[in-house]
Design a protein around this nucleic acid. Structure first.
Length: 589
DNA sequence: GCCGTTTTCGGCCCGACTGTTTTCAGTCG
């Protein structure tokens, strides 16, 4: 798929045009295309082959032609002309926080700086090498740039969902105890459950007279390493771990509006504002207004409902059609759910991907099963690694046979929980499995997962996964792309083909809940849902703590618009048994 | 550059904070 690389070209061009001072709406249009391309589940090449490309929202005639030029020639000549107008290093300067296009242009044109290294040298030089003589570039601004530059070199940018969540929870808990605080809620991409988080936004309800003291309290918290901004209602800090946290204090009558506004996404909010304007309202973080009169804002639901929309969970607010859905729900259209029964953690009845000391886990079969019971699960599967995973102590055939016996022995003793003898079998590079069929037939539950050859091309990756699903013993494909957030891309198969093959074979696809993986990802889950493929949310636990990751699977499932009915392991025992029976019969198991 | 249940032309979301400014531009979310 060339979606991502084309997105990068538009992004770079938008950056260059911003420095050049091109019409900002043109830049905005390009930014929208970047985001569209990054999230587009279909292959851009397939779309470009037909008139469908022009039907993608945000892509018009002119951009479609540029995309086709790139697919034809590997270049977009007009973009390359634009890039020539600015030294490449100037673009890197813009990556420094507090340096936008205007400042970058100033540093380049007035200061003669064309790279981050040159900028750093001048900032370190005596008297800032005269940079502060440039109009509108004062000493304070330059010091700030210097600080941010130092920060940039030590931080890695966005952090995983699972890393940001504990910090946010700690600060929210803290804030709820600060005098005058009536309510506090983390918002932003964290509340939407994105796989990586740039910074933490927290909305606080309190009377105006307390606002300053609440902001002050945040700057005194043990997590605070640096105060970035401190205003009347807004306080920004950097934590000791390097995360930026923005805290906004609003009165209770605006709290819902603030929570809605800071939860975003930005694109969702833009759509919502446009809708508000169309209906004669004005929407901002203080509330929904008709003229000067506030008509909603105490709660989020109030705002959506006044605009004639159902209030959907934050995870869906990505401008991927949820506003149309919300309008249809409000209008009680036939074929549209009357209420959105959001998937909850308590809907999950079992964990079907777990490791023990037999391979690379840290607990015994007994202990894992007992922990599952403690968590209220009514079924589970023990799925240790297969033989190719020798570094993870994968089981050779003879050991697997013994392991199956051992699991069945535990299963017999276990009360109130169905225990399946399973395996996480490697899908080898060519799509064949790591165990013979005769051995697979002895298992109750087979996950087939790719672990090696994760950088193979798209076409063989597609063939690999589709072939694995044609094996009659495979119940589910584990972490289908093998990606790691944020470091490893993993496989990039034609996901539409993979999903159709899963539907054809009655195989489930895993949503691996570990925040290192979150695989399948949100857009892929949506495809699975639309194709009627069951999704299995598993933690891939190697320890008890790993099982806590289930919530992140649930959150990611919500981002893919999954409801309880789309998730295999929400079924009661009988329903789950029936699904397995159907799968086995269909496959001639 | 994109788009249309007021429009094929004329719009395109909105506010807080900072810094460099005597009234506002730039950046960020």
């Amino acid at each position: 798929m060339k979606n991502a690389e084309i997105a990068k070209l538009f992004d770079r061009t938008a950056d260059v045009m911003a420095v050049l001072g091109v019409n900002s709406f043109k830049i905005l249009a390009y930014r929208k295309i970047v985001r569209t391309l990054e999230e587009l589940p279909q292959d851009i090449e397939v779309l470009a082959a037909s008139k469908e490309l022009e039907n993608v929202p945000g892509i018009g005639e002119s951009s479609a032609e540029k995309i086709r030029e790139y697919l034809r020639t590997g270049h977009i000549s007009e973009f390359e002309e634009v890039w020539k107008e600015i030294p490449a290093g100037v673009m890197d300067i813009m990556k420094i926080p507090s340096v936008g296009p205007k400042t970058a242009a100033l540093l380049w044109q007035e200061g003669g700086i064309t790279s981050v290294a040159e900028l750093k040298a001048k900032l370190d030089a005596p008297n800032l090498a005269g940079l502060s003589k440039i109009p509108t570039l004062g000493e304070k601004k330059l010091q700030k740039i210097k600080q941010n530059l130092a920060f940039l070199s030590t931080s890695s940018g966005r952090v995983r969902l699972g890393e940001a969540m504990p910090i946010a929870l700690e600060l929210v808990e803290f804030l709820r105890k600060v005098p005058g605080v009536q309510a506090a809620q983390y918002c932003g991409s964290l509340r939407r459950g994105k796989e990586t988080i740039g910074d933490i936004d927290i909305a606080v309800a309190a009377e105006e007279k307390h606002a300053k003291a609440i902001g002050k309290a945040v700057t005194k918290h043990a997590q605070c390493a640096e105060v970035i901004a401190e205003g009347d209602t807004k306080t920004s800090i950097r934590t000791i771990g390097g995360m930026q946290v923005d805290v906004r204090v609003v009165p209770a009558e605006s709290y819902g509006a603030a929570v809605q506004y800071f939860t975003g996404s930005k694109e969702h909010n833009v759509k919502l504002r446009e809708l508000a304007i169309k209906k004669g309202y004005k929407l901002n973080e203080w509330g929904l207004f008709k003229g000067d009169k506030q008509v909603a804002g105490r709660t989020e639901a109030e705002i959506y409902e006044t605009l004639g929309l159902a209030c959907l969970p934050p995870e869906m607010r990505e401008d991927r059609g949820e506003i149309d859905l919300a309008a249809e729900m409000w209008a009680r259209k036939p074929g549209v759910p009357p209420t959105w029964e959001t998937l909850e953690l308590t809907d999950l009845r079992g964990d079907l991907h777990m490791h023990t000391v037999a391979s690379d886990g840290t607990k015994s079969i007994d202990e894992m099963v007992a922990e599952c019971k403690r968590r209220g699960y009514i079924y589970c599967a023990i799925t240790d690694h297969s033989k190719s995973q020798f570094q993870a102590n994968g089981l050779k055939s003879d050991r697997l046979l013994e392991h199956i016996e051992a699991i069945h022995a535990v299963a017999k003793q276990a009360k109130g929980i169905l225990v399946l003898a399973g395996s996480e079998v490697d899908i080898l590079a060519d799509g064949s499995l790591d165990y013979e069929d005769e051995l697979l037939a002895k298992l109750d539950w087979v996950i087939a997962s790719p672990h090696a050859a994760l950088s193979q091309e798209s076409d063989p990756a597609t063939t690999r996964l589709v072939k694995a699903m044609s094996n009659p013993y495979v119940c589910v494909i584990g972490h289908p792309t093998g990606r790691l957030v944020p470091s490893r891309k993993g496989l990039e198969p034609d996901m539409q083909k993979v999903v159709f093959a899963a539907a054809r074979n009655g195989v489930a696809l895993e949503l691996n809940a570990n925040t290192m993986r979150l695989d399948l990802r949100d857009t892929h889950l949506r495809m699975a849902r639309d194709a009627g493929v069951k999704v299995c949310i598993n933690t891939d636990a190697h320890s008890f703590q790993d099982m806590d990751q289930m919530i992140f699977g649930v959150i990611t499932a919500r981002r893919g618009w999954l409801l309880k009915e789309h998730v295999l392991n929400t079924l009661p025992v009988e329903g789950f048994r029936k699904w397995m029976k159907n799968r086995k019969e269909a496959a001639g198991w």
